[in-house]
Amino acid sequence: MKIIRVEGDTARASLSGLEQEIDVRFLDDPRPGDYAIVHAGFAIDKLDPEEAKKTLDLFRQLSAEGLTPPSGPLPPEK
């Protein structure tokens, strides 16, 4: 959902034109224009459009050699 307006712990947010009141107490610095993942009436985190792009690029570049995840290299095993 996209945040339209923030007032304290609550915000108005919309998804495909439908507006709803959500609780934003679990977000750091919620602002109008942010995208939020909403569960049980609470925004549980923001969605990051930049990371969305990176994931697509990553899937495009995949090769049989494997991938380095955006969160950093795989931890050493064994």
């Binding site: 969605l47 990051d48 994931t55 991938l67 095993e77």
Partner: peptide, 11 residues
């Protein structure tokens, strides 16, 4: 291999 990767970093 085993390990954990994050393929949903937008969220």
């Amino acid at each position: 291999e085993s390990g954990a990767v994050n393929l949903y970093p937008r969220a």
